[in-house]
Simulated assay, not measured.
Amino acid sequence: MSGKLIVFEGTDGSGKATQAGLLCQHLEREGVPFREIDFPRYGKPSAAMVQEYLNGNLGKRPGDVSAYAASLFFSMDRYASYKQDWGGFYESGGLVVANRYTTSNAVHQASKLPEEERKEYLDWLFDLEYNKLGLPRPDLVLYLDMPTEITERMMRQREQATGTHADIHEQDETYLKNCRANAKEVVKDCGWTVINCASDGVPRTVEDIHAQVYRIVKKLL
């Protein structure tokens, strides 16, 4: 018996963590059992190479590390997470809500490649994680689409408010634009559900976005 896996995806700063958290709060109010997971698992040994990469210790720009190498860093963290944390719950029929997943590699790492090489990479990625590693395929991927100029502004505000430092993905606006352009094709090819998070260049409220999210999720429950 397998459970259900709902994934929130989007470029950096699109509100994935916020919307995943709001959904989990709603599920709790409704009495629906669930597990919430978040990638990468910063601070865990399995995410050490992810942190080396994102901190710029393997290259100061995202393109300094190949799509395939970077993908392996994230894949190993997901595999360890599944084996150590939520796999048993999922396999017993549980509902799992993920902030990022294999889908993040599809958005971020494929964007590093020429367009004609992206399908080959995506086939490799999904075969690696879903077949070779045995990780579950998502039942629903909610792609939060926010214009890059808005996410850039929101990330800079977040940095100032929290005193945190942007990683090499978040610092590179051109890279984020490429990720968003790549994601538009991935979304269509993979059948993800798009949530438009802005209207006429103005961000929608988190409550409005959540209401749309829950209407979609409710059909899966």
Results as ranks from 00 to 15, higher is better:
residue 84 Q to T: 11
residue 78 R to M: 01
residue 88 G to S: 14
residue 87 G to M: 06
residue 94 G to N: 00
residue 85 D to A: 14
residue 73 F to N: 12
residue 91 E to Q: 15
residue 68 Y to L: 07
residue 62 P to K: 15
residue 81 S to L: 05
residue 93 G to H: 00
residue 94 G to A: 08
residue 90 Y to R: 07
residue 74 F to A: 02
residue 77 D to C: 09
residue 73 F to Y: 07
residue 85 D to L: 15
residue 73 F to M: 08
residue 94 G to T: 09
residue 83 K to C: 13
residue 95 L to A: 06
residue 76 M to P: 04
residue 84 Q to W: 08
residue 75 S to H: 10
residue 90 Y to G: 04
residue 71 S to L: 06
residue 67 A to N: 05
residue 87 G to I: 00
residue 74 F to W: 03
residue 95 L to E: 05
residue 72 L to K: 01
residue 73 F to K: 10
residue 94 G to C: 01
residue 80 A to K: 06
residue 63 G to E: 13
residue 92 S to L: 14
residue 82 Y to R: 04
residue 80 A to Y: 06
residue 95 L to G: 10
residue 94 G to P: 02
residue 75 S to Y: 07
residue 64 D to H: 13
residue 79 Y to T: 15
residue 82 Y to M: 10
residue 93 G to W: 03
residue 72 L to H: 08
residue 92 S to F: 06
residue 76 M to C: 15
residue 87 G to Y: 02
residue 68 Y to R: 11
residue 70 A to V: 06
residue 75 S to M: 07
residue 80 A to R: 11
residue 90 Y to S: 10
residue 68 Y to D: 04
residue 90 Y to P: 03
residue 81 S to G: 05
residue 92 S to M: 11
residue 85 D to I: 13
residue 93 G to P: 03
residue 62 P to E: 14
residue 71 S to I: 06
residue 62 P to T: 15
residue 93 G to F: 02
residue 86 W to Y: 07
residue 95 L to T: 12
residue 72 L to P: 09
residue 95 L to H: 07
residue 76 M to N: 04
residue 72 L to W: 10
residue 91 E to Y: 04
residue 71 S to D: 07
residue 87 G to S: 01
residue 62 P to F: 12
residue 89 F to P: 04
residue 62 P to S: 15
residue 74 F to R: 00
residue 74 F to V: 14
residue 81 S to E: 03
residue 82 Y to Q: 04
residue 81 S to D: 05
residue 71 S to C: 11
residue 70 A to Q: 09
residue 86 W to G: 06
residue 71 S to M: 06
residue 83 K to V: 08
residue 92 S to T: 13
residue 66 S to K: 06
residue 94 G to F: 04
residue 65 V to C: 00
residue 78 R to H: 00
residue 84 Q to M: 15
residue 62 P to G: 09
residue 72 L to I: 07
residue 77 D to K: 12
residue 95 L to I: 09
residue 93 G to K: 08
residue 87 G to V: 01
residue 84 Q to G: 09
residue 65 V to D: 00
residue 78 R to Q: 01
residue 88 G to Y: 01
residue 92 S to Q: 14
residue 81 S to V: 15
residue 71 S to V: 12
residue 67 A to F: 13
residue 63 G to L: 12
residue 69 A to V: 12
residue 85 D to Q: 13
residue 70 A to P: 02
residue 94 G to H: 07
residue 67 A to C: 14
residue 89 F to C: 00
residue 86 W to Q: 05
